[in-house]
Design a protein around this nucleic acid. Sequence first.
DNA 1: CGGCATGTTTCGCC
DNA 2: AGGCGAAACATGCC
Length: 262
Amino acid sequence: MPEGLEAEIWTRAAQAVVGREIAKVWCDERVAPLGFVESSTGATIEKVRRCGKVVVIDTDGSSLGLHFGMTGRLEIDGTAPIPRLEYASGRDRAEWDRLRLWTVHDHQTSLSTAPALRMNDPRRLGKLTLDADLSGLGADCLTLTSDELTAGLGRRRVAIKSALLDQRVVAGLGNLCADEVLFHAGVAPRRPADSLTPEEIESIGAQCRRCLPRLLAAGGSTHGELSPEVRSAAGPCPLDGAPLARMAIGGRTAVWCPTHQR
DNA sequence: CGGCATGTTTCGCC
DNA sequence: AGGCGAAACATGCC
């Protein structure tokens, strides 16, 4: 579930905790750095922002990074801004919790309140970080310009799909959104990055700025033309009806339309 | 049982 | 040095 769009949704919802003092923290030590609990407890949350796919919580001390891996989710004050889609049949098991963070605010209302922030991640590929260095990230996917994309690509020769997934090239794009953007831009995912014309680069940037906000408003990465259902079925192209192609590119499954993506 | 999954990181080879 | 692909990581689901 978690790509940049999901991180954006969680970041917006988590504005609710700005200004609160962190009263108590529990975390799964297997996904957190040493000292995570000590560094965060007692701090005041000053800002919540997004860097690529990471939700960053700035406090008056350290900054806490929440990365969600493949299956992580976030609940704010007991409410999940994104309802679970995958693992729909399974429950929200407490043993999958990786972070529980209570604030003084919660304690004032009731001792049994839900944590202000709760991260749940069955597959445990997500990570918690302390003062993470996120300076290597490329330009953000939601506002990507053609100049930024050109600079990010450099002289890379890999498939454009692989390049778009490289967070140093563009920050926040995941497997679904990369396919979605290429679908709308009309560029085949296997095209070598250095073979794209300026027009194609511009088209990819334009589609990032146009269709990603639309996906965001619709609820996230899974709400595009190439929804998980369409992807797994690999049926007809939603645009022109041609049979969709499905193939691993750079270790990830790519879905595209060989007719209108060239 | 085999294969697949919305993501990084690491290793080895140019 | 840096680009690149494959493997590793961890676990649930179909």
